[in-house]
């Protein structure tokens, strides 16, 4: 199965057809919690990308040595190690960004998406494919976070990446904490709508 998939396909699959946020509906907590700006989304996305890629590769390299009985503890240990690494690095070199993301960097350890990819993909496939799958999933998460962040920041504070674009604040509501739920819900509905629209079109043909 792995051989007939190019690396490009693996990456685009993570971003589009199996997007962790909008399609698989996993790792919703940060998508609602700290998606108030594009920057936050980008930074947490990078952290997740790092953990996902490194964990996938690690598990893929050692897949023959992992005893099936202790599969899950090993995954957890691997993820926790890489999360600790990125946590320490961010705290040391980017203290301001780290402060903004708060507890969510540490919580990457409990993201269902990462464990799921290890269980479903990395423990069976070769290193190269696992790497690209990790990149795809990580990028998918990052793109999802940034899209939500873009909508919230643009509508909430009239800016993108902190640069004032609109010059006024259309709806303060969107950067208020509880608006995250609405934005994610509405965007999911929007994607559903597109899907239904296309299906209907196909049906008519």
């Amino acid at each position: 199965m792995a051989n007939d998939k190019s690396s490009l396909q693996l990456v685009t699959r993570g971003i589009l057809s199996e997007n962790p946020i909008f399609k698989l509906a996993l790792s919703m907590c940060p998508a609602v919690g700290i998606s108030t700006t594009v920057m936050n989304g980008l930074l947490l996305g990078i952290a997740v990308l790092f953990v996902q890629v490194f964990s996938s590769v690690t598990i893929s390299i050692f897949k023959n040595l992992i005893h099936p009985r202790i599969r899950i503890p090993t995954y957890t240990l691997t993820i926790a190690t890489w999360v600790t690494v990125i946590d320490l690095v961010l705290a040391a070199y980017m203290p301001e960004a780290y402060a903004k993301m708060g507890i969510f960097v540490k919580l990457i350890v409990a993201f269902a998406i990462i464990t799921m990819r290890l269980e479903m993909f990395a423990c069976k496939e070769p290193v190269k494919d696992s790497f690209w799958d990790g990149v795809g999933m990580g990028l998918g998460f990052m793109v999802g976070m940034m899209v939500i962040g873009f909508v919230r920041e643009l509508l909430g504070s009239g800016a993108v990446f902190g640069y004032d674009i609109l010059g006024f604040k259309p709806l303060l509501f969107f950067i208020l904490p509880s608006a995250g739920f609405f934005v994610v819900g509405l965007m999911m509905a929007f994607f559903n709508w597109i899907e239904i629209f296309y299906k209907r079109k196909k049906g008519l043909q």
Binding site: P177, S178, F181, G185, M188, A189, N192, I196
Partner: peptide, 19 residues
């Protein structure tokens, strides 16, 4: 509405609870 079935409506409801 069919577009809101499942998760989207759950998110909207959760948002209202959050408010």
């Amino acid at each position: 509405p069919p577009t809101f079935k499942g998760l989207p409506i759950a998110f909207i409801v959760a948002g209202q609870f959050a408010m």
